[in-house]
Design a protein around this nucleic acid. Structure first.
Lengths: 267, 267
DNA sequence: GGGGACCGTTCCACTCAGCGGTACGCTGAT
DNA sequence: ATCAGCGTACCGCTGAGTGGAACGGTCCCC
């Protein structure tokens, strides 16, 4: 429970756009109160995070338990299996995952490093898949988790091929520093993005997490102008050499891209 | 020891136990109206499946869209990315998945056949992971999807090690025939389950899907008495020889089991 | 080209589901 | 013994939620 200033995971208390004056809003607020690393939260903690009255949380949570979205243990509540089942039915993520999995497998087998598949969601990256073996570097990413775009290889790959308005929005917004090497200068980042467009590859060198290197490539749509997703290979500083994996990565994204094009996958 | 909270008896497959007279119930009903294979449903179809009045579905669906649980397109609604993100935070599934992934990878690499990870949920199997390459057999299973226990290798592996009440519940209930080879005789199935306890391996030979073979093994808990999950290897009749993969499968489940025990994973 | 079936959307007056202040019993730490 | 914090229970008020009715659009078939 180290309240380190670094972990941006803390809910910025005020900025919850969700309306808390409707039942559904309260229910969603309770579910979203669970961060990516929270296994179990007691009622009081849910009250604190949501700002809702205690009896209200108690009642809504009980309803959620009835619907198998929440589970009650003697130590608190946790997100239940029903949510997992529903989540895996999400249209775009499921399709992308099923089509991409063989290519991710190939890539893992050739590299034996952690392989990510991510899509853009607003101004952030959402990881749709993360596969790795026993020796994988300790990465902050999680399947279903989010990361900023400006400090991750996948983020840069996606941002480079995104609509100009999106790129401008991210460059013009906050570029929070996560490590000493995080690129916080919009101009420099913009240059890098242009290079990504030229080479088709994006890099991250300890910009989101110290000790971590990463190469990514975009999965392009049928026109070759936009990115449907991006794939990355990640490893620790020292043994990991990004260049080694570039051809395998390129092979993966082009193959996946053409299959998605054939399926008319739009995202 | 474990108070069998999971009373399988009451689990009659009445699809709608959910109360439709509360907002939350309606919302869940709408989300659950999406089957594993439904990509997109028009409003009218949601009305049909849920039995709710049209304006009600319209309004609740709009709310769900506002919370990023549903997405609206010109052709209808579909489950949105927000659900995927939430689902991947489900406590038990996420932990199991993260710990197991490296072992599943190993297993895939050694077999190059479709690998499944599943847990018991009531009287059914829920697949937590499914990984495979380009040549994978066409299986009806999906990550986050359900299958009956009596006709799948993973199901038999889980059922054999489940509490006697659970086994009795399944054997005493319906054993729907899915193929000519589905085992629908409770006695025969019971014999097979006993053999699973002796050998630590469960088989399926075209019992859920024609043309498909499968071997599974349970991931045992610290006591070695109950199954926390099960792993299977699947392939098509013809090239696929279950015996070939038995040792790799055994290695995977024992390794995973001991890691979970060390972590005091309970399920 | 007109009628009908089905669609998504909007309106609005009624009412009961949801609300949350208040209160209670139960831990542990002090 | 005291207290702070927890989960739970009660219950009268009220506005969020409701859904019948109606409207405009599209498609297809006669």
């Amino acid at each position: 429970m180290a309240p380190d200033a670094d972990s941006s995971g803390l809910d910025t208390s005020g900025l919850d756009t969700s309306a808390l004056d409707t039942v559904l809003g309260k229910a969603v607020a309770i579910l979203r109160a669970f961060g990516p690393d929270d296994r179990m939260l007691p009622l009081a903690e849910l009250v604190r995070r949501t700002g809702l009255p205690k009896p209200t949380v108690h009642r809504v949570a009980a309803d959620l338990v009835g619907h198998r979205l929440l589970e009650k243990t003697e130590h608190g509540y946790r997100l239940a299996g029903g949510l997992f089942e529903l989540g895996m039915r999400a249209a775009t993520e499921r399709t992308l995952l099923e089509v991409a999995m063989p290519y991710l497998q190939d890539l893992y087998e050739r590299t034996h490093e952690t392989v990510h598949l991510g899509v853009r969601e607003g101004t952030e990256v959402v990881y749709v898949a993360k596969i790795g073996g026993h020796r994988q570097a300790r990465t902050p990413s999680r399947t279903g988790g989010r990361m900023p775009m400006h400090c991750t290889a996948i983020g840069k790959a996606l941002l480079a091929y995104a609509a100009p308005s999106v790129r401008a929005g991210v460059l013009g917004g906050e570029l929070p520093r996560r490590t000493p090497r995080t690129i916080v200068a919009p101009g420099l980042l913009n240059q890098q993005l242009d290079r990504v467009l030229e080479t088709g590859l994006a890099y991250e060198r300890e910009e989101s997490t110290e000790g971590l290197l990463c190469v990514a490539a975009p999965v392009l749509d049928a026109d070759g102008t936009g990115a449907l997703a991006a794939i990355s290979v990640t490893g620790p500083v020292g043994r990991f050499r990004p260049e080694v994996h570039e051809s395998a990565l390129r092979a993966a994204v082009t193959a996946l891209g053409s299959v998605l094009a054939r399926r008319r996958y739009r995202g």
